[in-house]
C-alpha cells in the first residue's frame, strides 16, 4: 500500500508533538467495511495552530476522534501510527491512554449544549475532572473550577457554579466545555467545529478566547472546521480533506493565494464573500461521494472540471508543488492554470 508523503511542519520548528502516520479508520457495517479515513499522515508542532478543512463525511472528525481514542472497536478499526512525544498511542494500554486524555490531549465538540450532561451542574462537571484525576477534595475541586470559569471569562463564575447547562446560552456552554478540556493543562487541544452552532459575534468571542488561552499556555490547537473564513483567521497551516484523504496541505497564505488542488480552488471560489457581490457563484457540481461508494482513482474526479483518464484510474498521492511544505494530491499539480 502506497503511503503519502507526510505533511510536515515547516522547517525551523521544533520536533513534532503529534506525528500521525498513515492513519486509517474503517467501520464494519452490514454492507461491508467502510473506510472513513483512508491513510492520512500529518504532524503537529508544539504550540502550533493547525486547521483541518473538510465537508461532512470527509473524515475530518473521525480522524481526530481516532487520535483521542474515541473510536469504539468493533465496529471501528484504527490502523497506522499515532506518535505522541515519540510514543505510539495505538500501542499503549487502555490505562496509559486514559492518562493521556485530558492531561496531554483534550477535545472540544461542536454542540456544547448536548455535549454537557444536562442533569449535572456546570460546577460539578468542571470540578469532576480535578476530583477524579488530581485527587482534589470536593472543596478544592470547586475552588479550582471557579478559577477555570474565570479564565474562560464566564461572568460571576462563583454564582453560576451551581447552574445547569440549560440555564446557559450556547456561547457560555461552549466556554464551560473549553474549561473542562483545559482543566488539566493539555499540550494539544482538538476543537471540532467549536463555533459552528454559534452566532458570528459569539463565534468571534470564542475564537479570541481560544487564541488567548493558547498564548497563555503554549498548547497546540487543532481546529476542525468547514468554514474557510475561520481557518483563514486563526490557523498558520491547514490541511484540506476530501473523501477520507488529505488532498492539499500547506501554510495558510499559500492555500488561499495559490491553492493547487481543484477541490480547494473550488471551495474557495464557491464561498459567497462578504466583500464581493452579485453574479452567479462558482459551484462544484455534484456531491461528495458517500462512504463505501468511493469512485476509483481520484475520489474527486467525478466532480473535477480538469479530470483526465489517469484521474479515473490511479489514486493521486500527495506531492510537493515546489513551494515550501506545500503538498497537493492531484495528478495535474503544476499543470493547471492559475485562474
Amino acid at each position: 500500500m502506497a503511503t503519502d508523503i507526510r505533511t510536515a511542519a515547516p522547517k525551523g520548528q521544533t520536533e513534532a508533538l503529534l506525528d500521525v502516520r498513515d492513519l486509517k479508520v474503517s467501520f464494519q457495517t452490514p454492507h461491508g467495511p467502510v473506510n472513513a479515513v483512508g491513510g492520512v499522515s500529518w504532524t503537529l508542532a508544539p504550540g502550533e495552530t493547525l486547521g483541518i478543512i473538510g465537508e461532512s463525511g470527509s473524515g475530518k472528525s473521525v480522524g481526530l476522534e481516532a487520535v483521542m481514542g474515541l473510536i469504539k472497536s468493533p465496529p471501528g478499526h484504527v490502523s497506522g501510527e499515532i506518535l505522541f512525544d515519540g510514543h505510539d498511542i495505538l500501542k499503549m494500554s487502555a490505562r496509559k491512554r486514559r492518562a493521556l486524555r485530558g492531561d496531554e490531549i483534550s477535545m472540544v465538540f461542536q454542540d456544547a449544549m448536548s455535549a454537557l450532561n444536562p442533569s449535572l451542574t456546570v460546577g460539578a462537571q468542571i470540578s469532576e475532572v480535578y476530583h477524579l484525576r488530581r485527587g482534589c477534595s470536593r472543596d478544592e475541586a470547586r475552588r479550582k473550577a471557579v478559577e477555570l470559569m474565570d479564565r474562560v471569562k464566564i461572568p460571576s463564575a462563583r454564582m453560576r457554579l451551581d447552574a445547569y447547562p440549560h440555564e446557559f446560552s450556547g456561547g457560555m456552554c461552549q466556554r464551560v466545555m473549553i474549561a473542562t478540556a483545559l482543566a488539566l493543562d493539555p499540550r494539544v487541544l482538538i476543537a471540532d467545529e467549536p463555533t459552528t452552532a454559534l452566532d458570528v459575534t459569539v463565534q468571534r468571542q470564542i475564537m479570541a478566547l481560544l487564541s488567548e488561552l493558547q498564548r497563555e499556555t503554549g498548547m497546540a490547537l487543532v481546529l476542525i472546521t468547514h468554514d474557510l473564513g475561520v481557518v483563514a483567521e486563526v490557523a498558520r497551516r491547514a490541511m484540506v480533506m476530501y473523501a477520507g484523504r488529505i488532498v492539499e496541505s500547506g501554510d495558510i497564505e499559500t492555500l488561499f493565494d495559490a491553492a493547487a488542488h481543484p477541490y480547494t480552488r473550488g471551495l474557495i471560489r464557491s464561498m459567497p464573500r462578504i466583500d464581493t457581490r452579485g453574479g452567479e457563484l462558482y459551484s462544484i457540481g455534484g456531491t461528495p461521494p458517500a462512504a463505501g461508494q468511493m469512485p476509483p482513482g481520484c475520489a474527486f474526479h467525478p466532480r473535477c472540471p480538469h479530470a483526465v483518464e489517469m484521474c479515473r484510474a490511479t489514486l493521486p498521492l500527495l506531492q510537493a508543488t515546489g513551494k515550501d511544505a506545500h503538498l497537493s494530491a492531484c495528478h495535474l499539480t503544476g499543470k493547471l492554470d492559475n485562474d
Binding site: 458570528v200 459575534t201 463565534q203 468571534r204 475564537m207 468554514d227 474557510l228 473564513g229 475561520v230 481557518v231 483563514a232 483567521e233 486563526v234 495558510i252 497564505e253 488561499f256 474557495i268 464561498m271 464573500r273 462578504i274 466583500d275
Partner: peptide, 10 residues
C-alpha cells in the same frame, strides 16, 4: 465579526 477567507486580512 464575519470571518474573511483571506489570511492577509486577519
Amino acid at each position: 465579526a464575519v470571518p474573511v477567507p483571506d489570511p492577509k486580512l486577519r
